[in-house]
Amino acid sequence: MTTKLVVGLDGHASGERALDFAVTQARLIGECDLVVAYVIEWSPFSFHSAEENAQRHKRREEEISTVMTRVIDPAVKKLQALGLTVTGKVRHGDVADTLNAIAKEQKAAQIIVARSSEGGFSSRIFGSSTFNLVKGADVPVTVVQ
């Protein structure tokens, strides 16, 4: 049976470290597919002006397209060049919840993320996405330094 690993990317060097670690793991496992995922932070309970709402669908499409072009497609190509089977996903939502949802939906054995580069006030109060993922995930999580 093929093992699936979900790799969370963030468009930064830390995401690249997670990706490299996932490649090593996939090779060790042998029969292993990778799912590279990028979650655009979004909450259905945030506040917007009427004009922003009217343009929201357009903006969403643009956000997905930008992430696909800049983060997901290069990662997929890089892994495919290494002979791995890989799919890319871009979703909106809470980073920890959405990565966990993707892992459950894909029946993944593990989620691999890099230590978050987030900081500031909100992460001190509410915890970083990485911390929240480790705390609430339904599958094992590996956090790469």
């Binding site: 655009i40 506040f47 917007h48 002006s49 009427a50 709402n53 929201r56 669908h57 939502g93």
Partner: peptide, 21 residues
Amino acid sequence: SDPDDAGEVSHFQALATALSG
């Protein structure tokens, strides 16, 4: 709400926007 529609205007957001008016 369909999870696949995440990122679109939610019911809450439309209500909040209308209420702010």
